[in-house]
Amino acid sequence: MKMYKEIKTIQSRLIVMMIIMVGAAIAVVMLKNFAVGLLNSPMMKEYLKNSPYKNALSLMSKLSNDFSYYTYSQWFGKNYIQLSALVAIVFSFPVFSKEREKRTVYLLIGRMNRWEIYSSKILTGYLSVISVMFAGSFGYLLTAYIMKYSLPFSMMFYWTVMATIGTLLLYQIGTYASLIFKDQIKPFLLDIAIYIGIYVSGLFKQTRFLNLFGYMGKSDVLKGAGIAIFPTVVILSMCTAIFIGEYLQFKYMDL
């Protein structure tokens, strides 16, 4: 597979995203004591006593004493998911639209057949997404071990796998947006609109099943659950369907 060109094209974005992801992971672990100290301050305790949320105090105590809960609430259920959306958008929106907008696609076409062009682009993006997501997880885990916090490996692994699979779907949707527009702005805006739609769908009971972010940061893992099989299969099937449909569209489109 002729991936050298794609790797060179994506290289700087990959390095930047890797630094952001690993840096954020390290920061979340290192700031644990600081965050917990703030929450345990007398002023905050007084405030929480009067809070309308009945279990606010018990949650604060859990956050202080249970590192797995802290990990979920501050990283795998929050910042990691938000960063994964950024990862998907950064890697996907220029994939085809940039080549078409800048007219560099004529350098490729003919010298590679359409399958070679398509597969090298999409699979390089897949590998980049997986690398950044796993770097974020292992960066977090390693820092936690160095700081002597206890975090079950299996828990981290389940969250990582589900978040990565969800990000791959977001990436695949993003590349489709990149294919249908000839400039780079529209796919970028469409990606953002899709993310907002996914987030909003999680707010209503009737559309909650569409909330991909809920799957990516599943709280059941805290209670000992593993990878959610059914949604995983559905999401992977959607990825495959978009991958095939997108290829057929790319194969027969005028360039």
Binding site: R103, Y106, I109, G110, R111, M112, N113, R114, W115
Partner: peptide
């Protein structure tokens, strides 16, 4: 169409 011709070189 669609795969192009590998034995051709194009200067657009």
């Amino acid at each position: 169409f669609p795969d192009g011709v590998k034995d051709a070189s194009f200067v657009p």
